[in-house]
Design a protein around this nucleic acid. Sequence first.
DNA 1: AGTTCCATGTAACCCGTTACATGATTAC
DNA 2: GTAATCATGTAACGGGTTACATGGAACT
Lengths: 204, 204
Amino acid sequence: MAIEHIILGIISLVPCSGYDMKIEAERGSLGMLSALGFGSIYPRLKQLEEDGLVEIQQIETEGRRKKVYELTAGGWRELARWLKEPPAFPLPFRDDLLMKMLFWGAAGADRTALIEHLRARREESIEVLEYLAEWQKSETAFIDEYGMLVLTYIKTRLEAEIAWIALATTQLEGPPELPVHDTQWLAVLQKARRTKALEQETNS
Amino acid sequence: MAIEHIILGIISLVPCSGYDMKIEAERGSLGMLSALGFGSIYPRLKQLEEDGLVEIQQIETEGRRKKVYELTAGGWRELARWLKEPPAFPLPFRDDLLMKMLFWGAAGADRTALIEHLRARREESIEVLEYLAEWQKSETAFIDEYGMLVLTYIKTRLEAEIAWIALATTQLEGPPELPVHDTQWLAVLQKARRTKALEQETNS
DNA sequence: AGTTCCATGTAACCCGTTACATGATTAC
DNA sequence: GTAATCATGTAACGGGTTACATGGAACT
């Protein structure tokens, strides 16, 4: 996702220092989308300066030293160019919980741990929702028409997820169900293979 | 997300070769969650074998050579241990489209390109949905109770996304709106800074 | 005979994260 | 005066992706 462009994007909103970017990138909806560390920011900022896309606007010597960066004409153009470039479709999903669920049959029938995972996920989702609601009200939050749509997206998605968790939990609290689609009897075979492997070890 | 555990998970469903894993990891809902390449699989498979979590079950010499791996007792235990471990919350979202939307104000009022991005995204989402529906019907698809919940999750999410795209498109096709929340007049300042930077260049 | 597919592997590279190092300023 | 915060940077590490290399089998 080209961290360079995130940096250009942040500066385009407000000229700032590398430190400010890190702070800014942790706040609000941008914080939901990125995860910038200092180790990524400073070297790239240097590179961007060499490439002539950003320049140091001022160095605040009152109080602390601070390099405030601003976009050059080239920077504005590069940002616009990137924005118009077709964005990549977000695949794979890379979701630990879903991945574990796919393989849960190998866990040996322990459904309670999975229900606990879902409960924890629900709490975290709610926390994120609350955080965003709080952030939206804050003085420094900047939300334009586009940002509002992003916020709506995140909220919709998290709420849909919470609804799905309720559904999944209800089902998991009920009795185990047979595989929906298993023409090769993999579930049965799996159970047998697992038992065999664990027994063999005990015997040796 | 520990590729090792994905490998263990795949083998737990059906003993197979490194090549088979790659194929399997591209199919169905697992394909939506992972992106395994040969460069990741083979070295790790070797490592897992050294660690005693998997073992070569057989080498098919009829026709092609093929190392079929199976889990050891330790492998089954390690898989179960990982499954019970609390999964990480999927943040940041890492979504190119949303990231671009956050910075779209810097694009200079071109809304048509963004509408095109949304249209493309919608098509890709629909394709994924159709692919999953097709896969579900296939002979070799394995879907147990947990896998079904994952499928439901993916479908719900994609459908919610498509609905959101419709909403966003409708709004973007209308007239531009003023920022919802901008106490520092950043939008106005941004426009001025951009114009100034681009003009300065022309003059020099 | 040539191409595609099956099958296994290695090496280089890019990228991001983590940890480390430094120092000045403000707050307690 | 000492802890926390502001502020900038470097170095090492780990992890995954891409490209490369090899070779046999099956298909056309």
